[in-house]
Design a protein around this nucleic acid. Structure first.
Ligand SMILES: [Mn+2]
Ligand SMILES: [Mn+2]
Ligand SMILES: [Zn+2]
Ligand SMILES: [Zn+2]
Lengths: 143, 143
DNA sequence: GCTGTAATTAGAATAATTCCAAATATAATT
DNA sequence: AATTATATTTGGAATTATTCTAATTACAGC
């Protein structure tokens, strides 16, 4: 697994900006999230990370994921009480969770729609963030 | 604490419909959620429940909350990795979480807005449910 | 090559929730 | 009203995802 130069640059500058070091582990985990964008859990990231880096620990996986999330290179995605998942797609998007197949897909959101969502807030309320998740059956799974 | 007749009726029919029994504990917890609608956690419900029913157990609180949620008398509300909260407001609404004060307020959603949100899904996708949560500063807390 | 700091590591600790098996409450039947 | 069958409650143990801790290792600047 190789981290493409553009992303390597992105990672390095994000880490430098926040005064953190570029490590093999951080790079590896970032690369693996970019390569297969299926919103894996920390445990799943751990399993995949060990393939090329057998000595990495689960604690490090959690640490790296947290660092990447803090520096806004990835996003955390939560569904109800399930384990947190991780997503390297930085565009504004919601998530669709197919309960049938377990698949999670990105749903692009326009600025207009997000604007409308902001407008329905009561006066004096300002939202830094909106989280939207859909729950249902995907294209492959409808009956 | 007294459960108003309209809600008592609602509770009884919902439980009957799902083949479950009406118990003191279920009624008590439902009443207390309706009375103070501040999206409490299970632990908070437990504390309040014990005021009038000192022998109730935490396991029962969880059981009752699950039963009420299953029968759609209440909703579960999740914010990231925080403990689940419970809401007896059955209208379609989102939640605004003020990180400053910790307050959680209901945000009404029009059918039109929900329609628009459905329309942005890829073809072939059907959502049973949309979950929307805002995160920011409320009216009292902006600087 | 040393030195100071940051990051990784293995394992222990934590927190929310669920599970379990025994006791109790409720509803149905006699 | 007593009997029976089933559902619910209960306290405590178990589980699960995540965080914490303290020791080791890696790294950047001198
Ligand atoms: Mn995503
Ligand atoms: Mn609510
Ligand atoms: Zn599907
Ligand atoms: Zn506030």
């Amino acid at each position: 697994m190789r981290l493409e130069p553009q992303y390597k640059e992105l990672l390095n500058s994000a880490l430098e900006l926040s005064g953190q070091r570029a490590t093999k582990q951080r790079e590896h985990i970032y690369a693996l999230l970019l390569q297969k964008r299926n919103h894996p859990t920390a445990e799943e990231v751990y399993v995949r990370a060990k393939e090329d880096m057998p000595t990495i620990s689960l604690a490090t996986v959690y640490n790296c994921l947290e660092t990447l999330a803090e520096t806004k290179l990835i996003r955390q995605v939560n569904f109800e009480r399930e384990p947190t998942r991780y997503c390297p797609n930085l565009t504004k998007h919601a998530h669709f969770y197919c309960r049938e197949s377990g698949e999670i897909v990105d749903v692009d959101l326009s600025d207009e729609l997000l604007d409308e969502l902001m407008k329905v807030l009561p006066a004096g309320f300002t939202a830094k963030h909106i989280e939207i998740s859909y729950d249902g059956a995907c294209n492959d799974c409808h009956d």
